[in-house]
Design a binder for these strands. Sequence first.
DNA 1: TCGATGCTTCGGCGCCTGCCGAAACATCGG
DNA 2: CCGATGTTTCGGCAGGCGCCGAAGCATCGA
Lengths: 239, 239
Amino acid sequence: MDTPHAHPAGTDLASVARLLADGTRASFCVALLDGRAWTATELARHAGVAASTATEHLNALVRGNLLAEERQGRHRYVRLAGPHVAELIEGLAAMAPGRASPPRSLSAAGRRKALAHARTCYDHLAGAVAVAITDTMTERGLLDWEHGLRLTGDGEAWLGRLGVTVPAGTRRPSVRSCLDWTERRSHLAGAVGAAMCRHAFDAGWITRIGTTRAVAVTAAGRQALRDHLGLPAELLSRK
Amino acid sequence: MDTPHAHPAGTDLASVARLLADGTRASFCVALLDGRAWTATELARHAGVAASTATEHLNALVRGNLLAEERQGRHRYVRLAGPHVAELIEGLAAMAPGRASPPRSLSAAGRRKALAHARTCYDHLAGAVAVAITDTMTERGLLDWEHGLRLTGDGEAWLGRLGVTVPAGTRRPSVRSCLDWTERRSHLAGAVGAAMCRHAFDAGWITRIGTTRAVAVTAAGRQALRDHLGLPAELLSRK
DNA sequence: TCGATGCTTCGGCGCCTGCCGAAACATCGG
DNA sequence: CCGATGTTTCGGCAGGCGCCGAAGCATCGA
């Protein structure tokens, strides 16, 4: 070897980072942030590359343990390998250059606006709505940031009144903050964030817009958030 | 452009990841995980590249806001841009291929062993010792993982008896868990972790081994950890 | 003022890797 | 069994990027 001590710990770090360093692979991962499984062809079309190219990228991502795959007949379904991957990707994206490049088309502008308003982030809620919810929960003493983020007793009771049940006994932290890449503020993640998001879907408070990550708050959802958190309607209705 | 909708959100994610996707740049960042400022030449020699090459890499890393720089005379000092960068890098490294490549030389083996035992991770303590401290603090009810990680009342009192003072009023979470890339377990980070590490240096409980990230626990340190945490001596002495 | 040292700029070289299309293979629905 | 559709393999091409050395600039110490 010609280098003194060939990057002792640098190489393995680089090998992981390299997986996300390509625009197409990154585009796959961002798409998969919705927490659902996509087929290889869907991802290829989404990123605008040939199917053969997508195959090679997926091989790399699966091999690198960023994605998990599942074969069903002639379809190859892939999804993020776990919440830690989603958090890593969000953390990386939050560090991106501050200047959000202006959208180039009207439909892109609308899409961006919908995403900024409310969207899923792996398995919990993100966007302006999620940040507002998190802020209000903090103001009302449901969340405590004093010594690390935690759910207060009031918070537990409040969740119970909402009908949200959090699966217990897992190693996953029950509350966690996740940096929002549109708002640049924290929103609620972790097991509680996921349970709240799931419950909001089940109760019909939010619905997916088409097949994207963007979600819309329904009339019932606005009502529920006003009743339980006192959130003003104008914050929740998209113009 | 020849692609349908040129990676809307993928590009900025990729541009950040690309910075860490090169072995040499990654090697710089891993070196800087010790939290100190290095000169360009030091990093170049460390990674085994020409000074001109290092300059270009540093330009990229500073431009991408991963590193902060400070000019002093003819020296260019760089350091990580903040704790969030250190956490990102550790998170990425923790995802690296499980098989730790066996060290190729005796000195490398010794170095690796020292690092695995106790080292600094940006501004707090990592390695087997740090994991043991964190575990014991949990067992003794000083830390509570129930609803997100937090310091208990007992924990605060315990810190006070140790003489550790934590700067208050910052936005930085006071306790945080950081995934250890040698132990694959969590250790204590955040403002409290940093304050404890700083206090341990000041009190002479630990000292740096040469100019590396590895640290040694002194006799006084073993005594202190036994008195305050009941940690067995054999855990703290390197063989 | 003058050498030594640290850093930067600039060409130029070579490899790595992402891309495609064509062809083969696998699966599904009849 | 057969066409349609999803996926994979394989060449081959082209651009990007990391590397170096030489030369130039800035700063330090004397």
